[in-house]
Write a protein that binds this DNA or RNA. Structure first.
Lengths: 194, 194
DNA sequence: ACTACTTTAGGTCAAATGACCTAAAACTTC
DNA sequence: GAAGTTTTAGGTCATTTGACCTAAAGTAGT
């Protein structure tokens, strides 16, 4: 009885993974049910059996993907837990900036999702929720549970925009990733002094 | 002799404006030569007479648009010129953050262009160049010509990523635009003290 | 008014796409 | 192993799209 459901989940996951790959490489315009079927090694009709419409694929894909991204960041934050605040901060910042340095797979996907979210309410909602939890994870990780809510708000409101914007502008900046990470660490720590 | 060329430029501009509108509202996938023709009030064949292919439209559109954006920011920077550094900084930052607060037309367009630039070398190149000059304009405006290149680099490397990222994450942040502008001004001014 | 050049109108064509549909095959369950 | 359910195969169909093509209309320059 389990194999049936497992197989179903597996196929659905496969479809969503393929959709993500295609979106990442060919954008919104390039995502078609047929390409998904090709990539997943199944028939078009079979993809449509699991997801009635293209929009259904998109919605499921986005939801899954944000979940995975949040889990990844939570994991990174957890791995910094034992360090002191300055090292913890620097480590976390370096880690998240790294994604934006070269045009990573994750960056490409997010660029597409930002575009889609301007004209898709479901995606837009998921995105807002995702960033809200991201903001919480980051500020809690750096400020810690003992910090004031004002400190958390300031740290989150500095880091979240910066990190996302860095993934867009990195190649145009007159500083290296390391220099930027150092500067941002310094600024973040400064936010908590006063 | 002038009316002919004027008319030509006018029609081309009209086409590019329409392409921009369509991209902004319907994304890469929604941009078709026929929609452009409809919007511009001409025949498909006529659009194709001025721009042989869809890619040609896109390339011309991007180039024109970046030019307009840069001119706009230069204009804002110029209007702050007479103020002292703290007021100048705060004014410039408030002004550019405002764009990102609500999902403005400009934000929508940029979200699409970020996505397109991941898979289009022409657009990607124009984007990098655009951000490089933006970085110069902003850091020169704030630091001034007398400042060190290190100060300029730090100011540009803080503001450029932040502003672009803010346009993505604004709605998920726990602070108002005004609070964010104040904080960012404070941090930027601090960068030039030491 | 004639000629050469530019611009517009209207249409064709092959390829791609999302949504449907039907029947066969593969499974559970009893 | 029979009946019922889930999954897969294969196909159709209307629409849309970019690219082309040809002829007509418009616009100088002489």
């Amino acid at each position: 009885m389990s194999t049936g459901n497992d197989n179903r989940s597996l196929k659905q996951k496969k479809i969503l993974d393929c959709a993500l790959k295609i979106i990442r490489d060919h954008g919104d315009a390039g995502l078609t049910m047929r390409k998904i079927a090709d990539c997943a090694g199944m028939r078009l009709s079979n993809v449509q059996y699991y997801f009635q419409s293209k929009d259904d694929v998109l919605a499921a894909m986005v939801s899954t993907y944000f979940g995975e991204c949040e889990a990844e960041l939570t994991q990174v934050a957890h791995s910094c837990e034992s360090l002191g605040r300055p090292e913890r901060t620097h480590r976390l910042i370096s880690e998240v900036l790294k994604h934006g340095t070269e045009l990573s797979d994750m960056c490409r996907v997010f660029r597409e999702l930002w575009a889609i979210s301007s004209r898709n309410d479901v995606v837009s909602g998921e995105m807002t929720t995702y960033y809200e939890s991201l903001c919480r994870v980051v500020s809690n990780s750096i400020v810690g549970t003992e910090g004031s809510s004002r400190q958390k708000a300031r740290v989150g409101s500095l880091l979240l925009p910066f990190v996302e914007g860095y993934s867009i502008t990195a190649s145009s900046l007159p500083m290296t990733v390391e220099e930027v990470a150092d500067m941002l660490t310094e600024l973040t720590l400064g936010l908590m002094d006063n």
